[in-house]
Simulated assay, not measured.
Amino acid sequence: MTKLVLLHKPGSPYDDEPDAVYDFPRAYLRAVEEAMGDWVIYYEPVKAGHRGYFAVARISRVIEKPGVPGRYLALIEPGSFLPFDVDVPRLAHGRPMERALSEPDGTPKRGGVVQSAVRRLPEDEFAAIVNVGLPEDLEEIEARRYDPARSEVDEPAAAFERPVVERLMRRPYRDVAFRRRVRAAYGYRCAMSGLRLRNGGGRPEVQAAHIRPVLHGGSDAVRNGLALSGTLHWMFDRGLISVAEDCETILVSRNKVPDEVANRLIRPGCRLLLPSDPRDAPHPNNLRWHRENVFGQGIDGSDLPWG
């Protein structure tokens, strides 16, 4: 197996959905086939944006693109995609993170392999990039984020170096990474109430909700998340509220949610608050799944707190 870097440009004309599928030409088929079952890192080229290396995922299999001779699709293993906590620039101290992109003197190359959409990535470089984008102690960073007194009093945890790939698959670690990115994308505001509440210690009260649960094929992409208050998160998971086909109008199950409750909890106009970066906006396919599989289904009105 082989690890890869995959170039992804926002607004690409190809059928790229980083958490689901990567569209590529025949020229890269051998390299991508070698990577089946292994991990890849997504990279946004300089001319397309500023993110650099921005996410990790694992390829499950490769198929021919239906109806398009000479193009192929790398299918991403469900539940493997994870955005980096911080985007990783292509240069570290003026030198490329990938040795293949360096001249003998360490300066960046121009043209050639730099422009390749698919690049093989040695294990040590994969680990180095992931360790910057997703720090090993991310869970501890989050735990201490709003509790400075804890860092002063608690004894430091014993050092334990967990293998990178093992860390990427741990659900508690992934939950922390997902929560941090989703809440930041929405500016720590609830997407449905518009409120940005913090407790006495400055900790945001807003939660990160998966639109399509991981157990039902959803990913940890920001586009599969909504920042919601605790009550609205509960209502969303139980199908009492959802988002319409326009990806902005908030839907309410009016036969189960009294108007006075909806009016108190949801922002005027029932319009979803969207992230400032459109790349983080909820994906229409995820919202459609929620409407068709969760909204208005499976909850007995007698069990509702206002029933």
Rank of each mutant, 00 (worst) to 15 (best):
L4M: 09
G11E: 01
P13D: 07
D16C: 07
A27S: 10
L29S: 00
V32H: 00
E33L: 14
V40R: 01
I41E: 01
G49H: 04
S60F: 02
S60Q: 14
I63T: 13
V68M: 03
Y72C: 02
L73Y: 04
E77G: 01
S80Y: 06
F84D: 04
D85R: 14
D85Y: 14
P89H: 00
A92H: 12
G94T: 11
L101G: 06
R110C: 03
V113I: 15
P122Y: 05
D124V: 15
D124G: 11
I129L: 09
V130F: 05
G133T: 05
L138W: 06
E140C: 02
E142D: 13
R145F: 04
Y146R: 11
D147F: 14
P148R: 13
R150D: 00
A158H: 11
A159D: 11
V164Y: 08
R167E: 02
R167Q: 13
R171F: 09
P172D: 05
Y173R: 04
R174K: 15
V176F: 01
F178D: 00
A184V: 08
A185L: 06
Y186N: 03
G194H: 13
L197W: 09
R198E: 05
R203Q: 12
R212E: 08
P213Q: 10
D220I: 08
A221T: 11
G225K: 11
S229H: 11
T231C: 02
H233Y: 09
M235S: 00
D246E: 07
E248R: 15
T249Y: 10
S253F: 08
N255E: 14
K256S: 09
R264I: 01
L265W: 10
S276Q: 13
D280W: 03
P282W: 05
H290C: 12
R291H: 06
F295R: 06
G298I: 01
D300M: 06
